[in-house]
Design a binder for these strands. Structure first.
Lengths: 106, 106
DNA sequence: ACGTTATTTCGATGAAAATCGAAATAGAAG
DNA sequence: CTTCTATTTCGATTTTCATCGAAATAACGT
């Protein structure tokens, strides 16, 4: 069920903690940033962080690669873009939505 | 706190039921669609639907106007677009994100 | 092999969300 | 002004989530 997936992907950043965690791999870029490096700023237990990253990976929006002893989460751009596209399509289901005139810079 | 708001807005469609409900005003367009008209397809109690719509309004993504004895939820496009813009900015924090090359049609 | 570091898995707990049914409210229509 | 319809509010229940600490796992350096 497609809507199941989309809903889960939208839920992934659905609270401040989760949104912050989602931003880590996105902002880190292709080099990535070890998971543990971002633990302290948020004051989360390692297990909590791991839990969130695991769910994030479960949505498909993020992948995780082992690099030696650390894990590097990376943004999975294709599904992210797909999700954005879906949201835009939904949003513009109504032809009077001004997005159909003023296209915001990407 | 900006991130609080964004997280709440992302959570609003954060499960299949909520996503379906979010889509109602968006797809109905400016004429809107009475809340109760969409209750049956989802098999939700009226009170549950009301609860979800109330939260949706709380995020700012949707407004609700009384029209006679029924309520019409309507998409609030400005904040929706703002949210999309935010997501795109986040997503493209990394200059290698291909969105910075292939700009998808809006 | 051994200890170190990074992370996950497990089990528990408190907090929040989703859901319902019943009763309340607010217009509309007689 | 009573009844009907649409929706909300309330209170209770079940389910799901966020979080932690402790123990397990996995690669690394020695």
């Amino acid at each position: 069920m497609k809507i199941e997936i989309e809903a889960r992907q939208l839920d992934a950043p659905g609270n401040p903690t989760k949104l912050n965690i989602c931003r880590i791999p996105v902002r880190a870029g292709p080099n990535g940033l070890p998971v543990g490096r971002v633990k302290e700023p948020f004051g989360l237990a390692a297990s909590t962080l791991s839990h969130h990253i695991g769910r994030l990976v479960g949505t498909g929006l993020v992948t995780k690669n082992r690099q030696g002893s650390t894990f590097i989460p990376r943004a999975n751009y294709r599904p992210m873009i797909a999700l954005l596209g879906y949201l835009q399509d939904e949003c513009c289901a109504d032809e009077t939505c001004f997005l159909n005139e003023e296209i915001p810079a990407a």
